[in-house]
């Protein structure tokens, strides 16, 4: 099981802050995870409508969309950061 977290407008569009999912074996990268989520429902499709904008982190470190999700405990999706 993998914990998936959503922040800011990604969270608002998905409609939840987090969920725990069993990822299928054919989901090996962040990009494949996004495609799998989008197929789960319109709220995901809307959150990832512009997938190039959404950023990802695995176990609290920034990753690229090509990163492997194997062994990940926690995967987060969020807009580009705007702190400071």
């Amino acid at each position: 099981m993998t914990k998936i977290l959503y922040f800011a407008w990604v969270r608002e569009k998905v409609g939840k802050a987090e969920e725990t999912l069993a990822l299928p074996a054919n989901v090996t990268t962040v990009a494949e995870l996004v495609a799998w989520l989008v197929a789960r429902g319109p709220e995901y499709a809307e959150a990832f409508a512009k997938p190039e904008i959404v950023r990802a982190a695995i176990d609290k470190s920034h990753v690229k969309i090509s990163a492997s999700v194997r062994g990940a405990r926690e995967i987060a999706f969020f807009p580009p950061v705007s702190g400071g």
């Binding site: 922040f7 800011a8 407008w9 982190a57 920034h62 987060a76 969020f78 807009p79 950061v81 705007s82 702190g83 400071g84």
Partner: peptide, 13 residues
């Protein structure tokens, strides 16, 4: 400050 603004996961509304 420059790095914090591009790396720290904060979002403003």
């Amino acid at each position: 400050m420059d790095y914090l603004k591009t790396r720290a996961p904060f979002w403003k509304k």
